[in-house]
Computed example of a mutant assay.
Amino acid sequence: MNAKTIDKIWTGILYALSIFIVAILALLLGIIFIKGTGFWDPNFLFGSPKLGEAGGGIGPQLFNSFYLLVLALILTVPIGLGSGIYLSEYAKEGTFLNIIRLCIETMASLPSIVVGLFGLLVFVNFFKMGFTILGGALALTILNLPSLTRVCENAINDVSKKFQEASLGLGATKWQTIKNVLIPASIPQILTGVILAAGRIFGEAAALLYTAGMTTPHFKLGSSIASKANPFNIFRPAETLSIHIWKLNSEANLPDAAAIANKSAAVLILMVLIFNIAARVLGKKIYNKYAGIK
């Protein structure tokens, strides 16, 4: 066979595999959304669970998931971006830098359950924090920090050195060049990494089982910030949506536990899809803005 025939064969195989993967994803989404029909009901999305009764909602769990997401990103993004800038622009090639990168790669490959056990030992037991939102946010930071650091480092490295040299040649300092040239030019990739990390945070369960807990106090608006009834208290336990799904399927303490779990799964996967699509759309728009493409 000549080169063109071989190329057509392998191209066909690639297309077939791509279609197969897309079909599996479509089948998975279809099953989840069909089983979770009715998840868009406001009473379900914003209502509270009813202990021992059918027809409960996921309002507190949904709030906990978004609250944990915000806290984890507040901790993760500045540290990840700062680490990426250091590794890309300030760290010198050598043994020390190789050790840092090896540690980052090792941490990135840790299973989330291991990070959860670490959080249990350190945040819950050693620091006597108990099961808290803050402990869960710290565990999620440890889980996502290595991957976000590498994304930020690679994004800054991908910016053409000509831009950096031109800025320095015009008299700008190194920090001014990083702040005004490198970071804006690498924002699309960084933003994509942040939103993908957000999707992972929103759907995480294993690391939160041992740090944030599996219960949520009854919310009471207007209560003291130190009270566990205050939804914004970071030192209260918090059951997220992913943990709620696991709990429903493992304990089944509600008459319609299976139906609530299916609806919750549909909400969860819809949010993860929104995060992923948003990453692509926003990243492309920001890139076009900086590239001058209309």
Rank of each mutant, 00 (worst) to 15 (best):
F44M: 04
L140C: 04
N262R: 01
I21S: 14
A3W: 15
L208S: 00
F131I: 05
A197H: 03
S88I: 09
F202V: 01
L140M: 14
A108M: 10
Y86N: 02
L62W: 06
G213N: 02
M107T: 00
Q164D: 12
F33V: 00
R150A: 05
P111D: 06
L73R: 01
V114Q: 04
G171Y: 13
C152M: 09
V281T: 03
L110Q: 06
P60K: 00
M129Y: 13
N64T: 02
I32T: 14
L143S: 00
S224F: 12
T95V: 09
V159L: 10
V181I: 15
G55T: 09
V114F: 15
V124F: 15
A252V: 09
A265F: 10
I100K: 07
A185P: 03
S242C: 02
I201K: 01
C103D: 12
F46N: 02
K289F: 13
A198G: 14
S18W: 12
A258F: 13
R200H: 10
F275N: 00
I201V: 14
T141D: 01
W246S: 10
K294M: 09
G283Q: 03
L248M: 13
E165C: 06
P60R: 00
F44Q: 02
S147Y: 10
I6S: 11
R150C: 03
A108S: 15
L134Q: 04
L134T: 03
P188W: 03
A16R: 01
T240G: 06
Q189E: 14
T37D: 10
I58Y: 14
G84K: 05
F123P: 05
Q189I: 05
L28I: 12
I104S: 07
A252R: 13
L134R: 00
A172T: 07
F118V: 04
I269E: 07
I277P: 04
F127C: 03
F163A: 01
S242E: 03
G38P: 06
A137P: 04
I58G: 01
F63R: 00
G116Y: 13
G171H: 13
C103K: 02
Y290G: 09
S167F: 12
L45I: 07
I269Q: 02
T11N: 15
I85M: 09
L68I: 06
I245R: 01
A155Q: 05
G36I: 04
F20C: 11
K35T: 12
V272M: 10
A257F: 15
Y290T: 12
F131L: 09
K228F: 08
K285D: 04
P49G: 03
A197N: 10
